[in-house]
Design a protein around this nucleic acid. Structure first.
Lengths: 139, 139
DNA sequence: ATGTTTTTTGCAACATAGTTGCATTTTCTA
DNA sequence: TAGAAAATGCAACTATGTTGCAAAAAACAT
């Protein structure tokens, strides 16, 4: 089963049409192996990619539970949910302001249960910003 | 000493001109008593308020250390820093998606020290979203 | 208090991010 | 493979944030 067929299967399992656009999008997200931004996706998919179609498909893939947006505050960072070790929501994400990459820091987690009663929590994010080791050591 | 004079003094201490715009802006932020968004500020200051001037002044007031943006990820929530109990950065903020108000949840704090070495941390945020008690109980 | 200098304001224009509607194309189904 | 259903790509629009500059306001020296 080649790569194209894998994503075809994933889409079919969620009752989504296996369009070329969706297959290419999933392939790029999966190959990145880390949460990837819309802008980086645009670059990988080709600069002539339609912005609207990308927005709509990323939203649709999130709704279907195939991918996940781990940083809905900014412009979004998307990661595969399917078939990988669960990308649990409540660890820290570190965004490098230089290279724009997002790192998962599993050493720091949040405990929603300590939020006072009365608040109806829908989402919970831990985010740090700064420069990663690679960017910090550049001259 | 009336209210206007108080803000005049605060501005002068930071070597900022005590303009009507800045005094009104500080008054609204102070009266809110909680972190207030740019949009809410615009409403309070009057819909004919210039967007550019508001952006520039909020930035300037932050730079001067008079106010603080507790959510620089989204569109920003501003709170008085001066003369109040310190608004420490590392507790959770809860944003109500219905009324757009931001609540400080001091029960949950983050521990930056657990971030692995190599990462050069500049900022650190904890954010939850959902509905607050008032909005949750509305029909 | 008044005139001069400096800073701030308000406007026009621009840039980026995200959304909506719709005709055309692609994918699905029988 | 033909018709039905869904997705794509385009134009246009909204919201958010930024830059440059002339006019107005504030600060300052006299």
């Amino acid at each position: 089963m080649d790569a194209k067929t894998i994503y075809h299967e994933i889409l079919k399992e969620s009752n989504l049409s296996a369009t070329r656009f969706r297959i290419n999008t999933l392939k790029e997200i999966d190959m990145a192996g880390r949460p990837i931004s819309r802008n980086e996706l645009m670059e990988k998919l080709g600069s002539n990619t339609d912005r609207v179609t990308l927005y709509r498909n990323l939203q649709g893939l999130c709704d279907a539970g195939i991918i996940e947006n781990v940083d809905p505050e900014g412009s979004g960072y998307f990661v595969m949910k399917y078939g990988k070790k669960a990308h649990t929501q409540h660890h820290l994400h570190f965004e490098c302001t230089a290279c724009k990459k997002l790192y998962c820091i599993h050493e720091i987690v949040g405990d929603i249960s300590k939020i006072p009663t009365g608040f109806n929590v829908k989402s919970f994010y831990l985010l740090a910003k700064g420069t990663c080791e690679a960017c910090s050591t550049k001259t």
